[in-house]
């Protein structure tokens, strides 16, 4: 499957978000791809509020069967989320389970005013009632089960989309 250029998708995503920004909107990236993407958006949109990051490892629903992965990172939300509009940023939306975990984690920090979801790619096949508000690309054909669609970042900082087959 031909994958589009991540940088131009990222620009499109920023333009989708821009008209809806309010002065107190904050971005929260989900580790790891979502954080890279959120950093780009944060810069492109000129958001002044610091960037939040979360690692959903402690909220995953498969902990009982898979345990913790080797190196979870610290979540860091350097602002008060109560009443604030938040945009949760992830690279790829698939089953929706990561988004569910991220929402649960967010609500342990307080009660946000609203939460929207921004993703670079929606690969479909949802298992939960979750949909993105901002998404520049929706895949129409499904990827083989077990294959993973991921954002990767080169040493020079360039983002690209990759399919990793199981």
């Amino acid at each position: 499957m031909e994958l589009p250029d991540a940088a131009s998708l990222c620009e499109k995503l920023a333009e989708q978000i821009r008209p809806h920004l309010t002065p107190d909107t904050a971005l929260i990236g989900i580790h790891t791809g979502g954080v890279w993407l959120a950093e780009r958006l944060h810069h492109a949109l000129g958001i002044t509020e610091a960037l939040g990051t979360i690692d959903v490892a402690f909220y995953r629903d498969d902990f009982g069967s898979r345990g913790l992965h080797a190196r979870p990172r610290k979540s860091d939300i350097p602002f008060d989320i109560d009443g604030r509009p938040l945009i949760l940023v992830d690279d790829v939306l698939y089953t929706g389970r990561t988004t569910r975990a991220a929402l649960n984690e967010l609500f342990d920090y307080g009660r946000p005013g609203r939460v929207d979801l921004a993703v670079l790619v929606d690969r479909g096949e949802r298992q939960l009632p979750i949909s993105p508000r901002y998404c520049p690309l929706t895949l129409t054909e499904s990827l083989p089960t077990g294959s993973r669609l991921r954002l990767s970042r080169s040493e020079a900082g360039e983002l690209s989309l990759r399919i990793i087959n199981a």
């Binding site: 690692d55 402690f58 913790l68 979870p72 920090y109």
Partner: peptide
């Protein structure tokens, strides 16, 4: 090393409004 690495993000939980994880 794995135990020390995993402990690190747990230190942050103490600063949250809800100091609880569902694990």
């Amino acid at each position: 090393e794995q135990i020390l690495d995993i402990a690190e993000p747990f230190t942050e939980v103490a600063e949250r409004e809800v100091k609880k994880l569902p694990l």
